[in-house]
Simulated scan of single mutants.
Amino acid sequence: MRGTTYIRRYWQLYALLVLPLAYFVIFKYGPMWGVQIAFKDFNFFQGINGSKWIGLDAFREVFHSQDFTKTLRNTLMLNVLDLIVSFPAPLILAIMLFEVKFQWFKRLSQTILYIPHFISWVIIGGIVYQVFGTQSGLINNLLESLGMDAVPFLTNKHYWLGTYLVTGMWQSAGWGTILYLAALTGINRDLFEAAEVDGAGRFKRIWHITLPGLKTTIATLLIINLGNMIAIGFDRPFVIGNKMVMDFSDVLSTYVYRTGLESGQYTLATVVGLFQAVVGLVFVLGANFASKKLTEESIL
């Protein structure tokens, strides 16, 4: 009875949940019905229910495929390197912005840093080719005008890897500072003032006050990033990559695109998608367990 009274009193709050719940039911839980395609010899004309069951045959075919092994290796490699390069960047930027005393400069810097997040990867890809292209890129034109050899940023897989990581960090670092800056505002300013009175310098205040105050945020974001270790966005490797660097740029998302949309092998594409989801869940639970044991911070 008490629960019914509460709902009647605050029905507006529950009404606000209708659209988010509908979104998750329709676009998140609804498509789960299609997971069974991974266990069927899917025929587009017969539909999911009319297709024949094949058990784990598709899984065996995928796991024995050399293309799958290569794309899995590339996905893990790019995500691990991305985590090493891009994960600390927003944290460092947020601390630097937090230490800035001039508010107008801080707001201007934040605006400039946020802009890349709102640019489509298609446009970013065009910018990358204009800047790093071997024949007509801005940097190589400058190097050649100085009598130096052109650098194959986009045609050599090792140079491409560096270009991929730097571009990703540039695109995501500014937007990633938002959560850290929000967490920093929650730290008691009296702690900084007391540390300054005691003679602690800027770096000591950052080490002993700022970073411990961000411990929960860092742990949460790290768990989320580790959960996405087996998943990778399609846009970035597809737009920046090319056939000359396929040894590094071919990842699970592009493999699914080629297998599912270009070749029409929907069963194999679904197997890869299901594999990514299951392994991602294991990564999240494992990272959460490790974080809880080591730092006593977790999301579950």
Rank of each mutant, 00 (worst) to 15 (best):
A15Q: 00
A15W: 00
V18L: 14
L19V: 13
P20I: 00
L21H: 04
A22I: 10
Y23G: 10
K28R: 13
A38Y: 02
A38N: 02
N49A: 11
S51G: 03
K52F: 15
I54M: 07
L56M: 12
F59E: 00
R60K: 13
D67I: 13
D67R: 02
T69C: 06
T71Y: 06
F87L: 12
L93S: 00
I95D: 02
I95T: 09
M96W: 10
W104E: 13
K106E: 09
T111N: 12
I115Q: 06
S120D: 11
I123S: 03
I124P: 04
Y129M: 09
F132P: 03
G133W: 15
Q135I: 04
G137S: 11
L138F: 12
N141E: 10
L143R: 12
G147K: 06
W160D: 13
T163C: 07
Y164A: 09
W170V: 05
Q171N: 09
L179S: 12
L179V: 14
L184M: 12
T185H: 10
I187A: 11
N188M: 12
D198Q: 00
K204E: 02
I206S: 00
H208C: 08
I209V: 07
L211C: 12
T217M: 15
G233W: 09
G241Q: 05
M246Y: 15
D247M: 02
D247A: 06
T254Q: 07
G260C: 11
E262F: 14
S263I: 06
T270S: 14
V271P: 00
L274P: 04
L274Q: 08
F275Q: 02
A277D: 01
V278S: 01
F283A: 05
L285Y: 08
N288R: 06
T295V: 15
